[in-house]
Amino acid sequence: MSDETKTITLTVNGESVTKLVDARTHLVDFLRGELGLTGSHLGCEHGICGACSVRLDGDVVRGCLMLAIQADGASIETVEGLTASGEVADLQENFVERDALQCGFCTPGMLITAAELLREAAPKTREEIREFLSGNYCRCTGYHAIVDAVETTLTQRLEKSS
């Protein structure tokens, strides 16, 4: 009943995947190492930096704070999936335009977190955007440009939907 390894089946970016995993392997090591999805990054492996953020059954979570074996039966989305679906194409475009990324290591986690804010489709102040993103560390940009890019995307979406 208890295992050191187990075969799991899960959906990753819309595709069903079946793999044998070690119980101790966390989700991002699995995504990167077993599936070659290197868009999710490891910055601290103790749940502070947010570089490993992925979507679990629709909600953003820390990928380093979850075992791959726990994802059996779950649906995972990574930045590669969000890119392919076009869900954050406008946000990505605004990131590039506004130079809201430099080294880019935090960017996938930042996008996935921001996508959750955008999904709420409610007006936000810059302070609220900053607060929402406060669990994602960026050493390069100083955050100002990231807040700009998220704010612009939110404004554009709200204008479009109204």
């Binding site: 749940g47 947010g50 909600d59 953003v60 979570v61 704070l65 929402f132 406060s134 669990g135």
Partner: peptide, 8 residues
């Protein structure tokens, strides 16, 4: 904590 931590 933060949104990703509160989700889990």
């Amino acid at each position: 904590a933060h949104v990703a931590v509160r989700n889990r």
